[in-house]
Structure formats: structure tokens, C-alpha cells
């Protein structure tokens, strides 16, 4: 493959399984920034985030042959590897995570830079959809996904029964899905 930069993800993933370094580089150029943002949000620290993204890409490099299109797109697959690893690192390094809500708010504030303002329109619509959720649902989803909390920890943290945690996630994600479907953005995101 002489030039991978214009190839769709589905082609790149096949090339990746065939150990094509160009395909790896293109997938990094395409989603490395998103992967880093995710790892950084979970771990709150650049060095650890960098390690996680490195490990996730190498894991994708090794495991590309196991990728199945019918289980989701390449971007989603990469993000789930990054997420899994980052949460794993977080759980191993912290047995006690203080003041998650404050920490999250602090981080969000420090991210409101000029660069952040350049987010594309699609990006803002997903964020808008999340922000449009009732606060309890949004927090439950964010603390689970970005905070690495298990539902048992969340129930304790938020002082609600397990069933409530589960219910908030379910309803929140359903609303999010409908919002995204209305916007018609998310099926087309992956290249």
C-alpha cells in the first residue's frame, strides 16, 4: 500500500493485520488525538495517558486480525481498547480516588482553551447531547466511563441503590442515542 492516508478505516485495518506500518501511522494520525484526550481525561496525567495510548495502539497492531466489522467501527474499537486500558491503569494505581466531581470540574475548566474552541460541529453536537441530559444521568455516565467507577462504587458515592445507578445509565444512554440519531451524525463518523 503506497499511500494509506486516503484509505478508509476498513482498508487500513486489513493492512494493519498484514503488519503495514503505514496503516498504523494513518490510524494514529486519524484517531491518536481522540485516544489521547480520552486517556488523559481518565488518568488526569500526560505521562500515563501517553503510555496507555502507546499500549493501546500496539495492542491494536497485534490484534488487528481479531477486529470484526459487525461489532462496530474501527474508531469505536480503538476507543474501547484505550478506555479499557486506561481504566485498568487507573484502578491499579488508585484504591482511593478522592473528590471525583471536583476533580472533573477542575479538569474541564482547564481545558477551555482556544484549541478546545476549535472543536468541530459534530463534536459539539455529541457534547450538547450529553449536556442535555438530566444532571444525575449525565454524572452517572461520566463517572462510570471517565471516572472508572464500578456501579457498586457509584451507588455508594451517589448514595443511591444499585438499581438506580443502572436505571440512570440505561435511560441516559437511550436519550443520548435518540439525540444522536436525530442529529444523524454518529453512524457516519468513522471513515
Amino acid at each position: 500500500m503506497p499511500n494509506t492516508s486516503d484509505q478508509p478505516d476498513d482498508v487500513l485495518i486489513v493492512a494493519l493485520a498484514e503488519r503495514d506500518l503505514g496503516a498504523l501511522a494513518t490510524l494514529y494520525d486519524r484517531y491518536g488525538r481522540l485516544a489521547y484526550a480520552l486517556a488523559y481525561r481518565i488518568l488526569g496525567e500526560g505521562q500515563a495517558a501517553e503510555d496507555v495510548v502507546h499500549d493501546a495502539y500496539i495492542s491494536a497492531w497485534r490484534g488487528a486480525a481479531s477486529y470484526r466489522r459487525e461489532r462496530g467501527n474501527v474508531r469505536g474499537w480503538l476507543m474501547s481498547i484505550v478506555h479499557h486500558r486506561a481504566v485498568d491503569v487507573l484502578r491499579r494505581k488508585t484504591t482511593f480516588r478522592p473528590a471525583p466531581l471536583e476533580a472533573a470540574a477542575e479538569r474541564a475548566a482547564d481545558d477551555d482553551t482556544a484549541e478546545a474552541a476549535e472543536r468541530n460541529v459534530e463534536h459539539q453536537t455529541v457534547r450538547a447531547a450529553l449536556e442535555g441530559l438530566p444532571q444525575a444521568q449525565r454524572r452517572t455516565i461520566e463517572l462510570a466511563y471517565f471516572g472508572g467507577y464500578t456501579h457498586v462504587e457509584l451507588a455508594e458515592l451517589m448514595g443511591v441503590p444499585l438499581g438506580t445507578v443502572k436505571g440512570r445509565m440505561r435511560i441516559g444512554l437511550q436519550k443520548l442515542r435518540r439525540a444522536l440519531e436525530v442529529q444523524g451524525t454518529y453512524r457516519e463518523r468513522s471513515r
Binding site: 494520525d29 495502539y57 500496539i58 476507543m79 478546545a116 463534536h123 466511563y145 444522536l180
Partner: peptide, 29 residues
């Protein structure tokens, strides 16, 4: 459900990874 969850990273502010990270990944591969 995964389809929705995998959109969550898109809600984050952009964050540029250090330039060396790309080289590091390619060197390991």
C-alpha cells in the same frame, strides 16, 4: 449500546498528544 458509548470521547475537549508519541508507537511496532 456500544455505538453510543463509543461517542463519549467526542464530548471531550481536544488535546494534542506529545509529538514523540507517534514515533514511539511506530518504533515499538
Amino acid at each position: 449500546i456500544d455505538e453510543v458509548v463509543q461517542e463519549l470521547p467526542e464530548t471531550l475537549p481536544g488535546r494534542e498528544a506529545p509529538g514523540r508519541l507517534r514515533d514511539r508507537i511506530l518504533a515499538s511496532a
